[in-house]
Simulated assay, not measured.
Amino acid sequence: MTEFWEENFVEKQEMWGLEPAYSAVLTKDLFVEKGLKNILIPGVGYGRNAQVFCDSGMTVTGIEISKTAIEMARKHYGEQMTIYHGSVSDMPFDSIKYDGIFCYALIHLLDQSEREKLIRGCYHQLSTQGYMVFTAITKGAPTYGKGKQVGKDRYEIHKGVQMYFYDKASVQAAFENVGLFEIVEIEENQPFYLIKCKKSG
């Protein structure tokens, strides 16, 4: 995984442009409405989705597996966010409890035990009354069922990229114990679920 993303960022640089994803803007609006200040973004990439949170006065910490992506984030956004170099599988990187966590288009790239570990790791670092939002690809995507099947609802789309495709039942099963309160279907470059959770008590 490290190699794949490192090569991709070296070769394609700002492959998604510098505009934030639609789901990042929606999540920023939720976090502003709830008055959240301290945000963690696992899989921050080169920072395009982090910037909307910074621009709204939030403090952002990222985790990123690719050194090249971190260098690109520094080039575009300077030192305004802390970014830990490493895999989300190695969370936590600090002992901070965050008000908000935003995890964009990452969870579906992991295998089942890694997905479970990411959800647990994020929930563990969430403060009480904090919110975490994940985006995950749905079975409505044109790539669902394409490529080599490597598990239930999981396919190798390109060499080195295996994707797990969610439906509402699998979202419910994965997130029901971590404060799931809303699943929203949104259309970006792919159909995604915006999965919203709140940690209470």
Rank of each mutant, 00 (worst) to 15 (best):
E3T: 13
F4T: 15
Q13S: 12
E14T: 10
E14L: 11
M15G: 06
G17I: 03
A21M: 10
S23N: 08
K28V: 02
K28H: 02
L30Q: 06
N38I: 01
I39S: 10
L40S: 09
G45C: 02
Y46A: 12
N49I: 05
G57V: 05
V60M: 11
I65H: 05
T68L: 07
M72V: 03
M72P: 10
A73D: 08
H76P: 05
H76Y: 15
E79K: 14
T82L: 14
G86T: 05
S87C: 13
S87W: 03
S87R: 11
V88I: 13
M91R: 06
P92I: 10
F93R: 02
D94N: 15
I96E: 13
K97D: 03
K97V: 01
K97C: 12
C103S: 13
I107T: 10
L109T: 09
S113A: 15
E114D: 12
K117E: 09
L118D: 04
L118G: 07
R120A: 07
Y123L: 07
Q125G: 10
G130R: 01
Y131S: 07
Y131C: 13
T135F: 00
T135G: 11
A136R: 04
K139N: 09
P142N: 10
Y144A: 07
G145K: 08
G145C: 07
G147L: 12
Q149I: 09
V150E: 13
K152P: 06
R154Q: 11
E156R: 14
I157Y: 01
K159S: 09
V161F: 04
Y164W: 05
D167R: 05
K168Y: 08
A169I: 12
S170C: 04
A173F: 00
E176I: 00
L180Q: 08
L180I: 03
E182K: 08
E182I: 04
E185D: 15
I195E: 06
K196H: 04
C197Y: 09
K198G: 05
K199D: 00
S200Q: 05
S200G: 08
G201A: 14
